[in-house]
Amino acid sequence: MADETPKIQILKGAASDLSAATYQIHDESHTIGNALRWMLMKNPKVEFCGYSVPHPSENHINMRIQMYDGLSSLAALLQALKDLDDLCVTIDDAYTYSLRNDNYERWDEKS
């Protein structure tokens, strides 16, 4: 059953050139929804982007993307995923650097 649900579905009502579409992403929540929405809104070619969790007991989110100039929202989604991955790597590197090189307080915590 779980294997049959596709990770991403394009909901009906999407423009035929995908310049406006709602993507239903399975097995995701606000965690990815809000982060991805933010990254899509950072793209100047995106006219509108919003997401919702349609029902708390359904395990998916709906991500609406509308583009300017008839551009593909799927391309924008892929770009946003790539940028979000770059962001993760950057934060990971900065944290690791700080952990190795910064002079921070170390203390003994009793349990």
Partner: peptide, 19 residues
């Protein structure tokens, strides 16, 4: 961050298949 990147990768694979 590893978990986050794993989630991104799985969505990306699905989106690429769609494309």
């Amino acid at each position: 961050i590893k978990v986050m990147r794993g989630k991104i990768a799985s969505i990306r694979a699905a989106a690429e298949a769609l494309l």
